[in-house]
C-alpha cells in the first residue's frame, strides 16, 4: 500500500482513528498498536485540572500524529475559535473541521462549514472538513483551499456503513484532493467498501471504541483498509446480470 500524502505530509497509514468513546484510557495503547493509524483525532474541551492531560501523555509517548477536531461546534465562529485553541494547545495547524447543523442528526451545516473552512485556510490551517456526501459542496470546500474532504457514509456513530456509495464515488470524482470516508463505519466490510469506492483513507471512531473488543476491531479495520485499497487497484470485474462460466465449456463428457 503506497503512503497517503495530505498537504505534502506522508501518513503512515490510510486508517485514521478517533479516540472518542473508549471505555477506558488503558485500552488506548493496545488499540493504537492494533490499528496503527496515520492520524489520531482528539477533541478540545474545557478543563479545570492538569490531570486531564493523561490522554495527551499517552499519545505523545507513542508519538502518534494528532488531528484535533472541532466536534460539537454549531457555528463557524465557534469552530474557528476551537481550531485556534487546538493549534495553541497541541502545536498543530491541522484540523478536522466539524460545523454541526443540529445535535440530533449531527449532520454538517454546509453553509457554516464552508465559511469556517475559508477562514481557517486564510489563517494558515490545514483543513480537513467533515462534510456531507455532496460532490458540489466537496468541490466548494476544495475551492477555498481544504487539503482533503471527509464525506460521511452515514450519520456519526450510527454504524450504518455507506448508505449511498454512488455519492461517495461522485465526491471522489469531483475533487483532486484526498477523500477520507468519515462517519458511519460499523465494521470491516464498510471500511473495505470505502476504499474500493476510491476513498484514500477511512476514519473510524465509534466502530472501534464501542466494539465489544476494540483491539480486535482495530485490527480488523486495519486489514480491511489494506484489502479494500488492494482490491481497488486490482481492477474489479464488471458487474453482470447473468452467469458467465469460469470453467471451459468445451471438452465436457457427454
Amino acid at each position: 500500500m503506497s503512503a497517503l500524502t495530505i498537504a505534502g505530509r506522508a501518513l503512515s497509514s490510510r486508517l485514521l482513528l478517533g479516540t472518542g468513546g473508549l471505555p477506558s484510557l488503558t485500552l488506548l495503547e493496545p488499540v493504537l498498536a492494533a490499528a496503527r493509524p496515520g492520524l489520531v483525532t482528539v477533541s478540545v474541551r474545557r478543563t479545570s485540572s492538569t490531570r486531564d492531560g493523561g490522554l495527551l501523555d499517552v499519545l505523545r509517548r507513542l508519538g502518534v500524529p494528532l488531528l484535533p477536531n472541532t466536534a460539537g461546534c454549531l457555528s463557524a465562529r465557534e469552530a474557528v475559535l476551537t481550531a485556534e485553541l487546538a493549534r495553541e494547545a497541541l502545536g498543530t495547524d491541522w484540523v478536522k473541521l466539524e460545523v454541526i447543523g443540529d445535535e440530533a442528526s449531527l449532520l454538517p451545516d454546509a453553509v457554516g462549514l464552508l465559511e469556517a473552512a475559508d477562514q481557517l485556510v486564510r489563517r494558515g490551517f490545514t483543513v480537513l472538513p467533515y462534510t456531507t456526501d455532496d460532490p458540489v459542496l466537496a468541490r466548494r470546500l476544495v475551492d477555498v483551499g481544504c487539503a482533503a474532504v471527509m464525506p460521511l457514509g452515514s450519520p456519526i456513530g450510527s454504524g450504518l456503513g455507506i448508505r449511498n456509495p454512488h455519492a461517495i464515488e461522485a465526491v471522489r470524482a469531483a475533487v483532486d484532493v484526498p477523500v477520507v470516508l468519515d462517519a458511519g463505519i460499523g465494521t470491516a466490510s464498510d471500511a473495505a467498501l470505502a476504499m474500493e469506492l476510491g476513498c484514500d483513507a477511512v476514519l473510524a471512531a465509534t466502530a472501534v471504541t464501542r466494539a465489544d473488543d476494540p483491539v480486535a476491531m482495530a485490527h480488523a479495520l486495519c486489514l480491511a483498509v489494506e484489502a479494500g485499497y488492494a482490491a481497488r487497484h486490482a481492477g474489479r470485474i464488471p458487474l453482470r446480470s447473468t452467469a458467465r462460466a469460469s470453467s471451459p465449456v468445451s471438452g465436457r463428457i457427454a
Binding site: 479516540t19 483525532t41 482528539v42 486531564d52 490522554l55 476514519l203
Partner: peptide, 10 residues
C-alpha cells in the same frame, strides 16, 4: 476566559 485541553474525541 476559556481554558481547554485535548480529550478523547472522534
Amino acid at each position: 476566559v476559556e481554558i481547554v485541553t485535548a480529550v478523547q474525541g472522534g
